[in-house]
Amino acid sequence: MLELRDITAGYDREAPVVRDASLTVARGEAIGLLGPSGCGKSTLARVAALLHRPESGTVLLDGEPVRRWRHRAPRGLRTAVGVVFQQPRLSADPRLRLADLIAEPLRATGRRDEIPQRVAELAPAVGLTRDLLDRRPHEVSDGQLQRACLARALVLRPRWLVCDEMTAMLDASTTAALVAAVEDYRAATGAGLLAVGHDHTLLRRWCDRVLRWQEVTGRIPPATPGLPRTSGPQQPADVPPAGDR
């Protein structure tokens, strides 16, 4: 079980982005988390991947509470959760060939001897061909790069997978291919999935259970963007407060 209990997190103590969010992903279960952009769901995804220390709340991996985050988290816990982010261009080290990108977690954890075998297994699983593996990120398309990023997330055989808007930048066919690759992996290993996104059609098709942001936090997300903002803080800054005049 991957459990998030009453998580409050953000980048500014005064104004946390996520307040009191709770959700649970059981082994083998696929949870979709649906929310508008800017509601804090990416921050919650980073907390779930132990990449961001929450200000309060508990994260439990198979009942074991997480006490340290990022580099300080025990390697075994960190690598138990694989992550894929929205923008492949920003998620890939621009200097690494795709094969090295996929193998990087094996190098980092001192399992070099597994590299040839794992890369050879994963490349076809995510639909990458041999010649693409020798290219660098700027020589491949967004879709191809995202396939490599997914392979990198799977290379250490994580028990959970966190996909943060994994397919938001991609076309329909690549989206379907990546989702199929995730599902094949989950079917083979029984890994849990937390898929974060704003496309309800996609998440409902992909996941066992789809949670709305307000169900997770007990709060209604900020008003749908697109409608004019009229309230207080967005007033032009050069208007002095009434008392100053």
Binding site: G127, T129, S141, Q144, S173, A176, A177, R205, W206
Partner: peptide, 19 residues
């Protein structure tokens, strides 16, 4: 046809291979 069939509200099956 393949593109449309890849949509999550249709077959949700990718076109094999890559461009």
């Amino acid at each position: 046809r393949g593109l449309l069939q890849a949509l999550p509200d249709r077959a949700f099956t990718p076109i094999p291979g890559m461009p």
